[in-house]
Write a protein that binds this DNA or RNA. Structure first.
Lengths: 187, 187
DNA sequence: CTTATTGGTCAAGTGACTTGACCAATAAGA
DNA sequence: TCTTATTGGTCAAGTCACTTGACCAATAAG
């Protein structure tokens, strides 16, 4: 009822997974033993603050992030989300706004972002492992997956493995809003 | 450009993961070797149709499902989704409709469903592994996670580990629509 | 000056998956 | 017909990432 959403160990493990590191990689960089990190992620030991500091530095998170009870971060409110990018990628390609739907950047098996694009906004083409799912909340979207073009309307959705080359654009001059979910690699 | 979305091996692996089985479990039930299944899931061998038949039987999928090119199942259209439940759980609790947003039931690292609930519709409380994310598309939702009640409006979202006891209901007599994403256990 | 406690190390163990050597049964070639 | 491939597998050893338990130095407490 008042437990933090995730234990310290779980948060650390997720933060590590998101960076695609193994225990031995982290142990190398942090300069401590792999076994100790394992116990740490399973909440079997308490680290010193010195060590914890080195760990969060490597994992690019913060100690406060680890310790935040963040009970309320179970719910994320429409207007209050953390901004990831305010992209204005290339001239004439419109603007975009990406905000974080899943809480506290990381510590997750999958993540979701809310994307708003106006006036022809487009994206690059990224290829990686994992899977991608999107749901068009508002407006229209031209999605290109593996060379095939799909035109999506509100309520339409898509799903594909991340390794398929993909990109998208807003073909209209109205705003398009998309909820985009994907997995980090190698979970 | 015309590859199937997933290879046979990947589909088989996902189907197995969804059932929470290890290679040795499947090998036991199918009565073949673990090594061969490993090679099969990595697309290094072709099985006989007899063997494949036994495998899909255990995994509760079908051969046609494995071989479907399903290029177009990358996109799922608003009105055309597969219905999972048409629930009318208990008298006085309203009705619900759950449709599948992610394609072809299974073979996925995570899945998404679209939930529509009218007039006080509620859900049971399930506890399992994994993580849950939801986004309120329309209407209002009362979400209960680990004994704490949250009231959500359109555009609000939630995220929590599946092991926290959770349930939800529609507190209004209007329709509520939610996009719900979660992971199968043990990925 | 003992005796705990804290914060670690190290090496062996484990679970799940992968790999390579091998093999029986059918198919094909001279 | 008698080799010779090819197909569809088995089996045991190997690997990878993680876990576990025995141990240990340094500080704290009785």
């Amino acid at each position: 009822m008042s437990d933090p959403t995730f234990s310290i160990g779980t948060k650390l493990r997720h933060a590590r997974k998101i960076k695609g590191m193994r225990l031995c990689d982290l142990a190398d960089q942090v300069e401590c033993s792999e076994g100790f990190l394992s116990k740490l992620e399973n909440d079997r030991v308490k680290p010193s603050l010195q060590l914890l500091h080195r760990i969060v530095a490597v994992l690019e998170t913060s100690i406060s992030n680890l310790f935040s009870e963040s009970n309320d971060s179970i719910v994320s409110r429409a207007g209050t989300r953390q901004v990831l990018h305010t992209s204005n990628i290339r001239p004439g390609e419109g603007v975009g706004l990406e905000t974080l739907v899943s809480p506290s950047a990381g510590h997750l098996l999958f993540g979701a972002i809310h994307i708003v694009r106006a006036g022809g906004g487009s994206s690059g083409t990224i290829v990686h492992e994992g899977e991608e799912l999107g749901y068009v909340l508002e407006g229209e979207l031209d999605l290109n997956v593996d060379g095939v073009e799909y035109h999506l309307m509100p309520g339409d959705s898509f799903f594909f493995p991340s390794r398929m080359p993909h990109g998208y654009r807003n073909p209209t001059d109205k705003e398009t809003r998309v909820l985009w979910v994907n997995t980090p690699p190698t979970f």
